[in-house]
Design a binder for these strands. Structure first.
Lengths: 340, 340
DNA sequence: GCTGGCACTCAGCCCCGTTGAGTGCCAGAC
DNA sequence: GTCTGGCACTCAACGGGGCTGAGTGCCAGC
C-alpha cells in the first residue's frame, strides 16, 4: 500500500512541517529533499497519503500537514532517535551536579528537561511506595495535636498532622507507641508496612490504643495514598512560542497543569526509560489536549520504575529530539537517585 | 486643580474601562453615570485630566483609558473597598475547612484566592523564622549521609540532606549531638537558634565536633535562609482571559511565575492584612511586568506578619474587589493558622 | 462656566481585484 | 505501469479604496 517513496515523502512532510510550521507543498519537498522525482509524482503520492488519512490539507489551495495518524506512523517507523549532542550531555551532568536531596533532584530535573526540550516539562516525585522506610517519628505539637512523619532511605520526608487524645496519661504511651512503630517499620517497604500496621493496635495496652489508632491511620495514609501524587512543572513560558495556537494549545495546557490529577493521568504508567511513551493528539486520555502530544517515560532503577516524567507540547513537535531528551534525562536521573 | 467633577469623571472612566475593556468616550460616560452635564463639558474635563497625565488616548479618534497614574489616584482616593458578598464569605470558610497541615492550608488558600479574584494568585509559605522550633532530628541514612530536620510548632517541616563523616565512632556521638541540639533549640525562635548554634560546637568533645559542625551548618541553613522562599501559585489559566494582551500580560507573567526570586520580589515585604499593598504597572520592581498590577498583603497574627500573599493581573483590574478579597483572605488565613 | 453645533480624525469594516503557491488531471514518454 | 510536463483551476493572503461611526477639539452664544 505504502511503498518506500511514499513513506519517504511522509517523513519529509513531517520534518519540514515541524521545522517551518507551514503546510508543505510538492515543489518545495522535491527541492529540499532531492527526491529524484518530479513534483507531479509527489503530488500523486500525496493524494494517496491523504486518502489513507496520514496527511491533510488545511484548505484546497494549500500544502499538506500531517494528521495524528501521520505523526504516529512517523514516530513508529520513520524516525530514528537523534543521539544527544555532546553539549546536551554536558548540560545534563552539570545541571544535576550538587543536588542536595530528592526534592532538589526533582526540581533540577524538571528545569533541565524544560530547557533542553524547550517544552513544558512535568516530573512526578518518586513514589515512596517503592522505597524502604528509614525512620518513623511521632511528635506532640500541642495539647491536642501531633505530627506523624515517615522518612525513606533516600531522604524523602512525608508527614501528617493528626488530632491526638488530650495529653493525660503522660508521655509514656506516646514513647511506647513510637518505639514499637520504629521496631516494626524501619527497613520495611511500604507494602510490608501496610501488613504490619493492620495488626499493630492489638498488641498495645488499652490505654494507648486510641492514640495508636490515630497514628496508624496517618501512617497508612502516608504509606499508601499520597506519595507520588505530587508533580513538579517547569518551562511553562515555552508555551508562548505557540501563541498562534492559543485556544488549542496554550489554554488547554495551562488548564491541565492546574490539576494534579490530570497531569498524573497524562504521564500515565511508569515505563522503563528505554521505552518512552508517546501520545499524539487524540490519543491523550484527556480530551481538551487533543491538539497536543505527550512524551513520557518512567525513571528509576533497571528493575523498577519509581515515577514518571515527560513533556507536553503541540502535536507539531520534534519527536526524535524530544524522545531522545526524555529518555536520556530519565536514565540519568534514575542512576543519580539510585547511587544517591 | 482637580475639582470633584473631574475626579468623578476619572472614577467613571476607570470603572467603565475595567468592566468593558474598551476606551470610554464622553457621551457614553454621561449616559451611564447620570452626570448632569453635557458631553462637551465632560470632554473639556477629560482634556484637563489628559494634560495632567491621568488618562490617555490610544489614538486620536478613540475614547480615553486610564494611565498608571490614573489608576493610582483611583485606588488611593476614589475607590471604596467593596465589602465581600455573603457568598464569598461562605466560600472562604468552606474552602478552608478541614485543612490538614500548613502546606495544605497554603494550597487551599492559593486556590481560593485565584478563584474569587479570577486572577493568578501567589501565596508565600509561612516563614519559619517567625515561629518556634518544636523538634529537631538528626538521622543517619547510609554510611556517609544523614538527614537533618527541624519541625516548627505549627507542624511545618524543613529538612536537609548532609554528608556525614563515616560511621566509625559508633552511634554515641550522633546521639549526643542530637540530645544536646534538642535541649538547645526546642522552644527557641529561629533568631535565638542562630545565636545558640554559633557557640554550640565548642561545648562538645572533640570526637564529635566534625559531625556537629556539619549538622550545625545544615540547621543554620534551615533556620536562616530558605524557609519562606517557597511560594504556591494557582489560577494560571485565568490568564487566558487576557489572551488579547499576550505579549504584554500573559507572556511576562508566565515568565515571572517560573522564577521564585521574582515572585518574592513582586510580593514584597509582609504588611499587616489591614494594609494591602497595590503596585500598578511601572511601579512594579520587575520591569517586564510594567503592564500588570500586583495586589498583596502580609498574613499572620495581629502583631506579626508571617508571610505574604497576593494576586497578579493586568493593570486594567477591578481594584476594589481585588483589594477586598486579598485583605479578607489574608485575615482569615492568619486567624486560621494562629488558632491551629 | 456650561452647552450645542460643527468640522475633523481615524480605526474598523467590507468589497474587490491581483498574486502566487499549490493542486488535480491528463496525455504522452519511458 | 509508472513517471513527467503541461495546463487549467482554486483560494488564502494581501493591499487599495470607500464608507461608517464613534469620538474628539474648538468656538460662539447663553
Amino acid at each position: 500500500m505504502l511503498d518506500d517513496r511514499k513513506l519517504a515523502i511522509l517523513r519529509a512532510i513531517v520534518t519540514d512541517y515541524v521545522s517551518s510550521q507551514e503546510p508543505v507543498g510538492s515543489k518545495a519537498l522535491v527541492e529540499r529533499h532531492n527526491l529524484d522525482v518530479s513534483p507531479a509524482t509527489v503530488r500523486n503520492d500525496m493524494a494517496v497519503l491523504e486518502e489513507e488519512g496520514y496527511i491533510t490539507q488545511p484548505h484546497t489551495s494549500a500544502g499538506r500537514i500531517p494528521t495524528d495518524k501521520g505523526y504516529r506512523l512517523f514516530v513508529d517507523r520513520l524516525s530514528n532517535v537523534k543521539p544527544l549532542t555532546g553539549a546536551e550531555k554536558r548540560a545534563i551532568t552539570q545541571f544535576m551536579a550538587g543536588a542536595l536531596d530528592v526534592d532538589d533532584v526533582v526540581r533540577r530535573t524538571v528545569q533541565l528537561l524544560a530547557q533542553i526540550t524547550r517544552q513544558v516539562a512535568i516530573v512526578q516525585y518518586p513514589v515512596l511506595s517503592s522505597m524502604v522506610i528509614r525512620h518513623v517519628e511521632v511528635l506532640r505539637l500541642g495539647a491536642d495535636r501531633g505530627l506523624v512523619m515517615c522518612v525513606s532511605a533516600t531522604g524523602a520526608v512525608e508527614q501528617r498532622l493528626v488530632a491526638l487524645p488530650p495529653d493525660q496519661g503522660g508521655h509514656e504511651d506516646l514513647a511506647l507507641v513510637r518505639g514499637r512503630l520504629s521496631e516494626l517499620l524501619v527497613g520495611a517497604t511500604p507494602r510490608e508496612a501496610v501488613d504490619r500496621l493492620t495488626t499493630f493496635t492489638d498488641q498495645l495496652p488499652p490505654s494507648a490504643s486510641a492514640l495508636a489508632a490515630t497514628i496508624v491511620a496517618a501512617l497508612l495514609d502516608i504509606v499508601t495514598d499520597d506519595p507520588g501524587a505530587r508533580v513538579a512543572v517547569a518551562g511553562v513560558p515555552n508555551l508562548t512560542r505557540f501563541g498562534d495556537q492559543f485556544e488549542t494549545t496554550v489554554k488547554p495546557v495551562l488548564e491541565a497543569l492546574e490539576e494534579q490529577v490530570v497531569l498524573l493521568r497524562l504521564l500515565g504508567e511508569a515505563t522503563s526509560p528505554a521505552d518512552v511513551t508517546v501520545r499524539i493528539g487524540h490519543e491523550n486520555p484527556y480530551e481538551p489536549l487533543h491538539a497536543t502530544s505527550v512524551v513520557a517515560s518512567g525513571y528509576g532503577t533497571d528493575e523498577r520504575a519509581w515515577a514518571t516524567l515527560g513533556i507536553v507540547g503541540p502535536t507539531r513537535m520534534d519527536y526524535p529530539s524530544a524522545i531522545a531528551s526524555v529518555r536520556a534525562v530519565a536514565r540519568y536521573v534514575g542512576r543519580f537517585l539510585a547511587e544517591g
